[in-house]
Amino acid sequence: MRMSRRHSLACSAVLALFALAGCATVQPWERGTLAKPAMAIEDPVHETTQKLRTYSAKEGGAAATGVGGGGCGCN
C-alpha cells in the first residue's frame, strides 16, 4: 500500500514527538550529579597540560598539537 503524503507527514510528526519526549529541563537545583568532577566535559587543567606535554614529546617535536602563525616553517 502506498502511503499518502499526509500519512507520512503525520507519521514523522508523531516520531518527532517521541524524540521530544526524551528532552527534559534540568533545573538549577537538580544539577548535583552534573556538578560531579566525572561529569566535566574537559579534564582538569593540570591534567590536560600534562597530557599535552607527553603527547608533544612523543610526537618528537614542537607543535605536535598544531601551532599558530604562517607557513614559513619557522616556529
Binding site: R6, A13, L17
Partner: peptide
C-alpha cells in the same frame, strides 16, 4: 484515517 492522524499530531505538538 490520514486526517485524524494529522489532527492527533497537531494536538500532540
Amino acid at each position: 484515517g490520514g486526517r485524524s492522524a494529522a489532527h492527533v499530531s497537531v494536538i500532540a505538538f
